[in-house]
């Protein structure tokens, strides 16, 4: 078992918990345990294709899993995992467009489509 630190912006999806105890021998298993316990957090961490979103940073101890073996990074018992959010201060929220697809990511994805 290991402790996963949840940053303030994501605590809305973990019933306000700042730390969640998760099981698993590697990061992917720990995240599966987290999303099983708190399904609402899933779309904030994973894309629809099941990939970890690029703005999600996970650290095991002091190290970014991107510098280790990604989601296959093994976790030692008792090691602390931290989810590190992008925060921007008073970042402005755009308006969802009336024809939005109901997903919090729709505008971003529309922008990406337009940029192609």
């Amino acid at each position: 078992m290991t402790t996963l630190r949840i940053p303030t912006p994501l605590r809305a999806y973990t019933s306000g918990k700042s730390e969640v105890t998760v099981g698993g021998a590697k990061i992917s298993e720990a995240l599966t345990d987290l999303t099983n316990q708190f399904p609402a957090i899933k779309p904030h961490l994973f894309s629809e294709g099941g990939e970890l979103r690029p703005f999600v940073n996970l650290f095991v101890g002091e190290n970014n899993i991107k510098d280790l073996q990604g989601v296959d990074t093994p976790i030692k018992d008792g090691e602390k995992i931290m989810l590190i959010p992008s925060i921007a201060g008073g970042s402005l929220i755009p308006n969802p467009s009336p024809e939005g697809e109901g997903s919090p990511f729709s505008l971003r994805e529309r922008v990406r489509v337009r940029a192609k």
């Binding site: 912006p9 904030h44 979103r53 690029p54 703005f55 940073n57 970014n64 590190i84 959010p85 992008s86 925060i87 921007a88 201060g89 008073g90 970042s91 402005l92 929220i93 755009p94 969802p96 919090p104 990511f105 505008l107 971003r108 994805e109």
Partner: peptide, 25 residues
């Protein structure tokens, strides 16, 4: 290098909506 892309709009509420503890900044 740390944040290649910003989070999608709507994920992070603004300080005007979410508030900020005055001494934090």
């Amino acid at each position: 290098c740390l944040f290649p892309e910003p989070p999608p709009p709507g994920l992070v509420p603004s300080c005007a909506e979410g508030g900020v503890f005055g001494v934090l900044p």
